[in-house]
Design a protein around this nucleic acid. Structure first.
Lengths: 274, 274
DNA sequence: CGTCCGCTTTGATTAAAGTCAAACTTGGAG
DNA sequence: CTCCAAGTTTGACTTTAATCAAAGCGGACG
């Protein structure tokens, strides 16, 4: 939880000197009472993912209770958020950015086992040790909460556990969906499936709006390097690169600057997913 | 939920004519009251997995409430327990046997995305449609409960949801572990990993006893055909067969009758798992 | 007791992805 | 503005697993 924790903005904080989320607004000299008297904590009020994430289970009063323990932390791309085999001390919600979950074999072979976008929950609830590594794939903003605090809240508010259950079930669905990709798809289909995954997850809001308008084109930045994509798809860097080139030459995608991708027709991309 | 539902024993029931678990003991002419007066429902009393499964969350009273809705059903190997895309009408606990969860691509390519052993929970909690197929890999005994009944119970007893959460989290851990196998291991390592998985899951009780005694050998029946193993590992039947032959020739395993496997030294098998 | 069917094994060949190596962007530091 | 390092692409070749084909085995059944 140390490497790469950036000091990017006013609310950016390191592990050593974190501010409570409550202290963000108008500086730390604001009295606790002023904030507690408002209906919804300041930070939560501006939280774009509040209603979809686990916090959506909480009313004003409980949100306030929660916010007493949370802190917002920013990390730059590449920062290690959770170390494999480390003791679990806190959980978090992804507020912004993409988090890469990965596992390694003893000889160094790596597999990315999940990508988390806002408002996903981060951490193995009720666990003692982390069994995977979490890394910021892009600049990331987390809303962190100590393990014991969240577990107490969960015990006190079944509705909160229910929300987390729904999220966990969705993650399990996604993991199983990805197992099909890993086990049964060709390299070409894997790369197409990855692009579609990013296209549909990177900006859910803009994405939905686009869907409504019937637009089938899409433009986004890849949050992962070729090496990370390879580790996600169970391929090598070279194979990923070759398949991307093929998709480009076939007109399914356009690539600018290695990271920016345009998909002129999502339907055509879907066909390539197998 | 129709094909292959067998009538094997006294308690075996089809979908059309199910008995309540409460009516099992001493026949159906026994009055309801007699049974309700006992501390723990008859069926649950003999349930070997009660304490580990979700029912462990319930006290006598709630167990009784639960048992009012449950029914034990047996299926023969190969029976379809859940059809993909079907509406969810009931959940179940695996009491005995192995259940295979799989997904298919449009062109017929199949991937087994999980194996469930007693006392695993079966079904997508809070879902509307099934997103995978469940099939009895061996003769299976399920303790079924209607969707609405379980969901009401879950709502009323947070401790029950907590148990199910723990199970779901374990399943997610297992799915991610398997993603590493699918994405990054060689055919040979995949087969070894599969054998180890079966060895450690097929009979948890005997297995633990063995562990305690320091015994490193193990004997079991494969619950899956070569075709199913291939679909689990993302390989072809031929490759699975060749790798099994190699493990046999190397003295890591012994094979009798295609299904019976002996592992003389689990340590040696573990080394082969990568 | 033999035959048939489905499953499994084995063998020969092909296709797909990996490996090794080199060249090429690109974006940042000096 | 140029150079450098890291990341990416491309090419030649190798390895792995898939495919195609045929033979073996084992249990069910007449």
């Amino acid at each position: 939880m140390i490497k790469g924790c950036a000091t990017i903005s006013r609310i950016a904080v390191g592990d050593g000197g974190a501010y409570s989320a409550l202290h963000r607004f108008k500086g730390a000299n604001m009295s606790r009472n002023d904030i507690h008297n408002s209906d919804v904590p300041i930070l939560c009020r501006s939280c774009e993912v509040r209603h979809q994430g686990m916090c959506g289970a909480l009313d004003q009063h409980h949100l306030l209770e929660l916010s007493r323990y949370t802190q917002t932390v920013r990390y730059e791309a590449g920062a290690e958020l959770i170390a494999d085999d480390s003791e679990i001390t806190s959980y978090a919600n992804v507020m912004r950015g993409v988090v890469k979950l990965s596992k390694m074999l003893e000889d160094g072979r790596q597999q990315v086992v999940g990508l988390q976008f806002a408002p996903d929950f981060l951490g193995r609830l009720f666990g003692r040790q982390n069994t995977l590594e979490a890394e910021a794939a892009s600049p990331v903003e987390l809303c962190k909460i100590p393990k014991s605090a969240l577990e107490k809240l969960v015990k006190a508010h079944p509705e909160l556990e229910h929300r987390l259950m729904e999220q966990t079930l969705r993650e399990l669905d996604e993991a199983r969906e990805w197992m099909v990709t890993l086990g049964r798809k060709t390299a070409s289909e894997k790369v197409a499936t990855f692009l579609l995954l990013i296209a549909t997850h990177i900006d859910p809001v803009a994405n939905e709006r686009q869907e409504e308008r019937g637009e089938r084109s899409m433009k986004f930045d890849l949050p992962l390097s070729r090496a990370d994509i390879a580790d996600f798809l169970g391929l090598t860097i070279e194979t990923v690169s070759r398949q991307l080139t093929k998709l480009r030459k076939d007109g399914v995608i356009e690539i600018v600057n290695n990271r920016q991708v345009t998909v002129p027709d999502l339907g055509r991309l879907k066909v390539r997913c197998g």
